[in-house]
């Protein structure tokens, strides 16, 4: 196990280094001067020069690369053009808020999706087709339609929940009331995917020899389901959750926009409107690190759940 972990972590670190280098190169090598992109083509030359200097773009490429890594290792992502504050502070302040939405919505998706998926593969024809059309529906409705519909229903018609905004965790009740709608919105798609995964894998697993053996031993259906079958479908579920945790950033962008949630993606959108270059770079770097870490975590969890993976 230790050897597997070490190897997998090493691979992740290499991928991370290459991915971060890619960000560095895209900014500098792609045609078009970043300073001009930030300022627009009509900017005065001396202003462009000042921005180039502040970004360190006037130095030779290998010096820039060295300095870039030195700053990264010291967690220095530069200063926002707009607020003049260190980018790392803002990024780290916003990141947990986005994580909260992603983690809660995936948890909700698992809590809803696994039971529905089990019901779907229970063999009753009507249940099975009902749940598969539900899953198809959940996957097909765009995030922003769901979000808008939730605001319309819960905030404007029923007046149960606020339509958006953010309150710190220090006021837990108010915080919770504002978390509910974005989390519901973001959970819809993943729930459909979990239902499909459970259904697809469970009905195949329930036909395998070892399940037949377990039945022949006289185990109850519940014991078969929980001890044998569910354990085996955990690997694909964890894998798909990992993918979703990355893909769901898309849903998060929409959720943060609809519910005015000041997370990482609303930071990115604001930075794009303001051409706040260091902030854009900071957000992209952080999400790449995040996605690679999630992939690593998924591999490690799967190696724990399924020993076979470790020895491949």
């Amino acid at each position: 196990m230790l050897a597997y972990v070490v190897r997998r972590v090493a691979v992740a670190l290499v991928v991370m280094a290459v991915a971060l280098t890619l960000v560095f190169l895209v900014i500098r090598v792609v045609p078009g001067d970043p300073a001009l992109l930030v300022l627009g083509t009509r900017a005065r030359p001396e202003v462009v020069q000042a921005v180039r200097e502040s970004l360190g773009l006037d130095r030779p490429l290998h010096v820039q690369y060295y300095n870039w890594w030195r700053d990264l290792i010291h967690l220095d992502l530069g200063q926002s053009f707009y607020t003049k504050l260190p980018v790392i502070h803002e990024v780290l302040r916003r990141f947990p808020r986005s994580m909260e939405l992603i983690v809660l919505s995936l948890a909700l998706a698992v809590l809803l999706g696994i039971p529905i998926g089990i019901l779907a593969s229970s063999g009753r024809k009507s249940l099975s087709s009902l749940s598969s059309s539900t899953a198809l529906m959940l996957i097909s409705v765009p995030d922003f339609v769901i979000g808008t519909a939730l605001v319309l229903l819960f905030s404007l018609q029923l007046r149960l929940l606020p339509s958006g905004g953010f309150v710190g965790i220090m006021r837990p009740m108010e915080h919770l009331r504002r978390v509910i709608l974005p989390v519901m919105m973001m959970a819809v798609g993943p729930t459909g995917i979990v239902i499909r995964m459970v259904r697809g894998n469970l009905s195949a697993t329930l036909r395998t020899d070892y399940v037949t053996t377990a039945r022949a031993k006289g185990l109850s259906e519940a014991a078969i389901l929980f001890k044998h079958a569910l354990r085996n479908i955990m690997v694909p579920i964890v894998a798909i959750l990992g993918v979703e945790a990355g893909v769901r950033l898309g849903g998060m962008v929409i959720a943060e926009a609809i519910f005015s949630w000041p997370g990482i993606s609303s930071l990115l959108i604001d930075a794009c409107y303001q051409r706040d270059y260091p902030v854009i770079q900071g957000v992209i770097l952080l999400t790449a690190v995040y996605v690679i870490s999630v992939n690593l975590l998924v591999d490690l969890v799967n190696a724990v759940v399924n020993p076979k993976i470790r020895y491949e």
């Binding site: 991928v15 290459v18 991915a19 890619l22 078009g32 992109l37 990355g246 893909v247 950033l249 898309g250 962008v253 993606s265 990115l268 959108i269 794009c272 409107y273 051409r275 854009i280 957000v283 992209i284 999400t287 790449a288 996605v291 690679i292």
Partner: peptide, 19 residues
Amino acid sequence: MDLLMVFPPIFVGIVAITF
């Protein structure tokens, strides 16, 4: 290709369209 998939599509999309 693996490397490119490390960057979430919508984030790259937002930045690319901005520029």
